[in-house]
């Protein structure tokens, strides 16, 4: 094709202090991991129990449910929407599935699948509302969250569902050589998401839609469909998370999942998923989840009086977000 010599047009970058910049850039890009390492050392120095295998297993188990939720939350964020109903979906769908088992005599696996199907359907419905009805996702999913929380309370009549059959609680309790198997589900979910986002047309479409929906549309991407699928997969992941949480705790309380809300949204954002859409990856989400889990577990282990745990945890998250904000400005 044509080969007219045009003078270099790409804006040249300042060259001075390249190596310094590179180091600072690397630090800022990996700030979640560095911060995580610092905290691990810090907690470990306070209480050497933190470095035990048992504690590592504990952290992985604790991270699993939050991880499923954070991965789910990341999807609507990537298409420049938000789904606040995901933790409530987790609680409600697991209760529906468990009740099918305990009250209607369904086999445990059918109950679990039913719960996941309900969660997926709720995600799909959210997607429909946001695309076809053009509802604002922040408010639509907020109302869905309130509805689901209320429905869970109504369904359980305020009581805790226990007496879950052994099959249902197996995955949350089983160990191999003392290693719990539940975190494997989280690992599989992360790999699934990584492949989805990097290797599939859907994943590329998600990034394009989140980056510039109008451009994606005129590039031939079905924007509405992409958003609906993102919400649906988010619901699916929340459903699995719900099953895991119930299986692990061997109980479903009347406000199951609610306490996860803020952490589930904070984790992907700390991990670099942009609230404006189009930016973020699975490794970052994983880092955000690990950071929050380490903070929670660590504060418990070094025996910070429980009155202070919330506040100190909040400050640590604040620092992580502040550093991230600096990172964004630095690379502008």
């Amino acid at each position: 094709m044509s080969n007219v010599s045009i003078k270099a047009e790409a804006a040249p970058r300042p060259r001075s202090g390249t190596s310094n910049r590179a180091i600072v850039g690397w630090v800022l890009h990996n700030v979640v991991w560095i911060w995580l390492a610092i905290l691990v050392v810090f907690f470990g120095l306070f209480n050497s129990f933190f470095f035990t295998v048992f504690n590592f297993q504990n952290i992985m188990v604790q991270a699993t449910v939050l991880g499923m939720l954070a991965t789910a939350v990341a999807l609507p964020l990537l298409v420049a929407e938000i789904d606040l109903s995901i933790p409530a979906n987790l609680g409600f769908s697991s209760a529906v599935g468990a009740l099918a088992v305990t009250d209607y005599g369904a086999p445990w696996w059918l109950g679990a699948l039913f719960g996941i199907a309900v969660a997926t359907a709720i995600g799909f419905f959210n997607g429909l509302c946001i695309t076809r009805l053009r509802m604002v996702s922040l408010i639509q999913t907020l109302s869905m969250m309130i509805i689901l929380q209320g429905a869970l309370l109504a369904l359980t009549q305020g009581k805790t569902i226990t007496s879950l059959p052994e099959g249902y609680t197996w995955i949350g309790q089983a160990t191999i050589d003392g290693w719990p198997i539940m975190p494997l589900v989280f690992v599989v979910a992360l790999i699934f998401m990584a492949v989805l986002l990097r290797r599939t047309v859907l994943g590329r479409s998600i990034y394009a839609v989140g980056g510039n929906a109008a451009a994606a549309n005129s590039a031939g991407i079905r924007v509405d469909r992409t958003k609906i699928v993102a919400f649906t997969i988010a619901g699916f992941l929340a459903g699995i998370g719900g099953f895991l949480l119930a299986s692990w705790q061997m109980a479903i309380t009347s406000n199951q999942g609610s306490s996860f809300l803020l952490y589930a949204i904070a984790a992907p954002i700390i991990g670099g998923v942009s609230v404006f859409g189009g930016r973020g990856n699975v490794v970052g989400v994983f880092g955000g989840v690990m950071l929050l889990t380490v903070i929670q577990v660590g504060l418990a282990i070094i025996a910070v009086p429980s009155f202070y745990v919330g506040m100190i945890g909040g400050v640590m998250i604040f620092i992580a977000v502040a550093i991230d904000a600096i990172r964004v400005r630095y690379f502008q």
Binding site: V201, A215, S218, A219, G220
Partner: peptide
């Protein structure tokens, strides 16, 4: 700017966007 390109994606990702199917 409005509906031609996705700004923060790479040149390559923009170029292949319409041929992904």
């Amino acid at each position: 700017r409005k509906d031609g390109l996705v700004g923060h994606l790479s040149i390559g990702a923009n170029m292949s966007l319409s041929s992904l199917p």
